[in-house]
């Protein structure tokens, strides 16, 4: 069995890691809101946001290389969405792309908007990477629950976190079983076995889900999920929260 982690650096110890998960969720959510609501022309503000997040990253002792790698992994999705923006936004045409019988005009407003989407998306991704890696995933889930995110949603995510690796291990075992019984099979045969594996995996996870539900019933589950919490918001949490909000507001104001 592999010991996979979604939140590799969440067990470090730093000023940021020690903050209450609820405070962290709130602060990073505020960061994202400020970033999204900053007008695209305020280049300097975006730069300052980036500096702020880099500062937090340094404080959290998460390796910069890791954050960079993770953030770039997510960027292709943003590019896919952003790539079309400059072509359909009306405005001053800078350049017209001739693709056979379709003519695509590229506008200045469109380009600005694309830049805006990419920068804001990147900064928001940095925020979420920092959040996920400075709090234990389990604590984050409980934090969301305490912040009145619907229990059902929190439960679905927590079951996903618990069983993702169980199902992954199952898939790996089936792959090993397939490989040890097939000699140089490729092409259509391979696709056929792979689709069978997917089907079996689905049925197995379905059956597992049923068993888990029975196990829950055995221990008195009747509907609501109840867990214990033992958290207290400390003075340092409040300082952290106030400090971050003041900085965010200063950055926002300085751009005006």
């Amino acid at each position: 069995m592999r010991h996979a982690f979604l939140d590799e650096y969440s067990r470090l110890d730093s000023i940021l890691h020690r903050r209450d998960p609820r405070v962290k969720i709130g602060v990073f959510f505020a960061c994202i809101l400020f970033i999204v609501l900053t007008p695209p022309e305020q280049m300097r503000s975006f730069f300052l946001y980036f500096l702020l997040l880099s500062g937090l990253m340094a404080l959290s002792r998460i390796p910069a290389v890791f954050v960079l790698r993770k953030s770039l992994e997510l960027m292709p999705i943003v590019f896919c969405i952003a790539a079309f923006i400059p072509f359909y936004k009306p405005g001053v045409v800078i350049f017209t792309l001739n693709a056979g019988f379709i003519r695509l005009p590229l506008t200045h407003t469109g380009l600005m908007l694309m830049w805006n989407v990419i920068v804001k998306a990147y900064l928001s991704i940095l925020c979420s990477i920092l959040l996920v890696n400075t709090a234990d995933f389990v604590d984050l889930l409980k934090g969301f629950e305490r912040l009145r995110i619907p229990r059902l949603v929190v439960m679905i995510v927590s079951f996903m976190y618990r069983y993702l690796f169980v199902i992954e291990d199952e898939l790996e075992r089936m792959q090993v079983a397939r490989m040890s019984r097939s000699v140089r099979r490729s092409g259509w045969g391979l696709i056929k076995t792979l689709s069978n594996i997917v089907g079996v995996l689905f049925i197995r996870s379905y059956e597992k889900a049923e068993k888990v539900y029975l196990a829950m019933c055995c221990r008195g589950y009747t509907g609501p999920i109840r867990t214990l919490h033992a958290w207290r918001i400390t003075k340092n949490d409040i300082y952290f929260c106030a400090f971050m909000l003041i900085i965010l507001m200063t950055i926002r104001m300085s751009g005006v």
């Binding site: 389990v138 079951f159 069983y163 597992k208 029975l214 829950m216 221990r219 109840r226 867990t227 214990l228």
Partner: peptide
């Protein structure tokens, strides 16, 4: 794996008593 469904060992063992 069917018996232990909560995110941490503590939550799992506490599941019954809390219910």
């Amino acid at each position: 794996d069917a018996q232990l469904f909560m995110p941490t060992v503590f939550d799992d063992v506490a599941f019954g008593p809390v219910n």
